[in-house]
Structures are given as structure tokens and as C-alpha cells.
């Protein structure tokens, strides 16, 4: 008896095979690059963790706010001034990216499909820990490219966890895939040192900590922080006053994700920042 020539792959235990594995099986995802230690690693020395952008996220009274500037750069050149670096992965999760856009967007796409693939095949939602881990795994698989000086991605992941205790959760990563849960805020990208300073100051020494802020107050601080980052970091777009290009701000709450309309951001900017 000949084996059946049946066309599609039969996976008897869906749990053993996640979506990236399925893509690899079908040859749709490049295997992680392996750095050859014998043959020399020509670009290793030149690798510098420059993720030219500024992304920030912090918890406030209404959930987690995630904001990113819109500038995309290649070396000294501004390539695009309307880049979208705050990406929705599912109804309750946001991935905000600093790093090489090609890799980052691909990662977001894989991640988005991974969560849905899991839900559809396993008939249950992936846990927050599982989602956080899935991104970590993608980053680690990508580390070969990072060591060759291409494709570094350092994301922030914000989500709302309904189990066991309903609360907003915020994670940041390093380029190797280690994940860290942030209690109050996280920032990544080349402009992040300034932002981190501002958020630390706001959280500890101002009238109220970040977690107590209203939405308008939170938006105002996010805009001020990005504007400050853009002041000294050429890779951060901040707010383009002339071109009326505002940062992208999204909020994750129990109800899901809200993208703040530009008119609202413009109003807060005019009132409290400009």
C-alpha cells in the first residue's frame, strides 16, 4: 500500500506546533540566522544597539497608554514621517516597536497570527504569559540577525489580563528576548533615556503617581516626554508643529484598544504642551 498523497499537512497535536513552526514547515519563515564562530563574525564589532525612535508606555487610571513618534530613519536620513510603530496585535494587546521596521513589522504579523492560530486550533485564548513568551521567542530566534548587525528589534508589549485578576500588564524586552514586567512605565529606542527620566520624575515626585492620572493628563505627559526626547535625539520625530503630525497614542483597557483621534491629541497638545 502506498502512503496517501494527501495534500495538506496533518498535525495530530496542535499544541506541539505553534504558528512560527507551521510557517517554517511550509518554508514561509526564514530559519534563524546562525552566527558562524569559526568563520569569523565580520560585523559583530560594528553592532551597536541603535534603535532610532522613541516609544513609551505607562499605566494610568484608564489602563495602559502606549505612544510612539512617527519618524523612520536610515542613518542620517529621515525616510518617512508617518511611520506606525504602535501596532495592534489582538483585541487587547499592543506591540510597540523600536528597531528595524522590516523585522519588527514581520514580527508583529507573525505574533498576530500566532495568537489567532492558537485560539482557533486550541479553542481557547492564549494566556498573557503565553503571549509574552511568544514574543520573547521571536526575538531570540532573530538574535542571529542582530549579531550580524541587521534586524535589531526592541519592543514593548502592553496587554490587558482578565485572568486571574483583571489588570493592565506592561512588558519590555531586550534584543535577545529577555522579558521584564514593568510596574509603572517602560520606554525604548534611542530617545528613551530622556523619556525614562521624565517618567521617573513624574511618577515619584509630582503631585500624583502615573497610575492615578486621568486620560488627558496621561496624554499630556506622553506628548511632553516625546517632545523632550525629540529635542536632543535626531531620530525621534516628536511633534511636527509645522506638518501637524502627532505621535500615535493607543490605550489598552478592559474594553479593548482605543486609538486616540488626532484631533484629541492636537487639542491636548495645544492646551498643555505647545
Amino acid at each position: 500500500m502506498e502512503p496517501s498523497l494527501v495534500a495538506f499537512d496533518q498535525n495530530f497535536s496542535g499544541a506541539a506546533d505553534d504558528f512560527p513552526a507551521l510557517l517554517r514547515r511550509k518554508g514561509l519563515l526564514a530559519p534563524a540566522a546562525i552566527v558562524n564562530s569559526q568563520g569569523g563574525t565580520p560585523h559583530q564589532k560594528s553592532w551597536q544597539p541603535t534603535e532610532a525612535t522613541t516609544i513609551l508606555a505607562f499605566k494610568f487610571s484608564g489602563g495602559v497608554l502606549v505612544a510612539g513618534d512617527r519618524r523612520a530613519t536610515a542613518g542620517n536620513t529621515v525616510v518617512y514621517d508617518r511611520a506606525d510603530k504602535v501596532l495592534e496585535i489582538d483585541r487587547h494587546s499592543i506591540m510597540a516597536i523600536a528597531g528595524v521596521p522590516a523585522t519588527a513589522w514581520e514580527m508583529a504579523r507573525v505574533l498576530e497570527h500566532s495568537f489567532q492560530y492558537f485560539r482557533r486550533t486550541q479553542l481557547q485564548e492564549m494566556s498573557v504569559d503565553g503571549k509574552v513568551r511568544a514574543l520573547s521567542k521571536l526575538l531570540r530566534d532573530n538574535f542571529g540577525f542582530v549579531m550580524q548587525g541587521v534586524g535589531v528589534v526592541v519592543p514593548i508589549f502592553a496587554t490587558y489580563d482578565s485572568h486571574p485578576k483583571p489588570e493592565a500588564r506592561l512588558y519590555f524586552y531586550d534584543a535577545m528576548g529577555a522579558q521584564f514586567e514593568a510596574t509603572d512605565y517602560a520606554a525604548t529606542g534611542s530617545g528613551s533615556p530622556a523619556v525614562r527620566g521624565i517618567l521617573y520624575y513624574e511618577n515619584n515626585w509630582r503631585a500624583k503617581p502615573l497610575q492615578k492620572l486621568s486620560e488627558d493628563e496621561a496624554v499630556s505627559i506622553a506628548l511632553r516626554a516625546l517632545d523632550t526626547a525629540a529635542e536632543s535625539d535626531t531620530s525621534t520625530g516628536g511633534v511636527d508643529r509645522g506638518g501637524k503630525i502627532y505621535p500615535l497614542i493607543k490605550i489598552v483597557s478592559r474594553e479593548g484598544i482605543t486609538t486616540l483621534p488626532e484631533s484629541k491629541i492636537a487639542a491636548v497638545f495645544k492646551e498643555t504642551v505647545a
Binding site: 495538506f8 499537512d9 496533518q10 507551521l22 510557517l23 511550509k26 514561509l28 497570527h113 482557533r120
Partner: peptide
């Protein structure tokens, strides 16, 4: 079901 989901997901991804 798995076959259908795999096909649809890879098509939707690529």
C-alpha cells in the same frame, strides 16, 4: 479542521 485552519492561516499570513 486543523487542515482548514492551517491553510487559511498561512494564506492570510503570506
Amino acid at each position: 479542521r486543523m487542515g482548514a485552519i492551517e491553510l487559511a492561516s498561512t494564506e492570510g499570513f503570506t
